[in-house]
Amino acid sequence: MNGRTTPSREMVRSLAQALGARPTDLIHWEKAWDRADADQRSIQLRRETEKSLRQRLTRTAP
């Protein structure tokens, strides 16, 4: 984990276990990972959409 990539869901689960998280708490760690992943995917999609729109506008501008 270097701050440049998102750790996998399994990595987060393993880390939580290694740090002493109870089995009943692991679902909360997994749900937090799911939320962070969904947010990251949303940001990426928004960036790609904005880039695509800018390219279209540039091509159609007089």
Rank of each mutant, 00 (worst) to 15 (best):
M1C: 02
M1K: 00
N2C: 11
N2A: 07
G3A: 03
R4G: 10
R4E: 13
P7L: 01
E10F: 01
E10W: 00
M11K: 03
M11D: 11
M11A: 14
V12F: 01
R13P: 07
S14C: 02
S14E: 08
S14A: 03
S14Y: 00
L15F: 11
L15T: 13
A16Q: 06
Q17M: 05
A18V: 07
A18N: 13
G20R: 01
G20A: 02
A21Y: 09
R22C: 04
R22I: 01
R22M: 08
P23C: 00
P23N: 09
T24P: 06
D25G: 03
D25R: 07
L26T: 04
L26H: 11
W29D: 08
W29L: 04
W29F: 12
E30S: 04
W33T: 01
D34Q: 09
D34H: 09
R35N: 00
R35V: 01
A36L: 00
D37C: 00
D39G: 03
D39K: 00
Q40K: 02
Q40C: 01
Q40A: 08
R41P: 06
I43L: 08
L45S: 14
E48W: 14
E48R: 14
E48T: 14
E48P: 08
T49L: 12
E50C: 09
E50M: 12
K51H: 09
K51M: 13
L53N: 13
L53V: 14
L53T: 15
R54S: 12
Q55S: 11
Q55D: 15
R56W: 14
R56E: 05
T58I: 03
T58W: 08
T58H: 09
P62E: 15
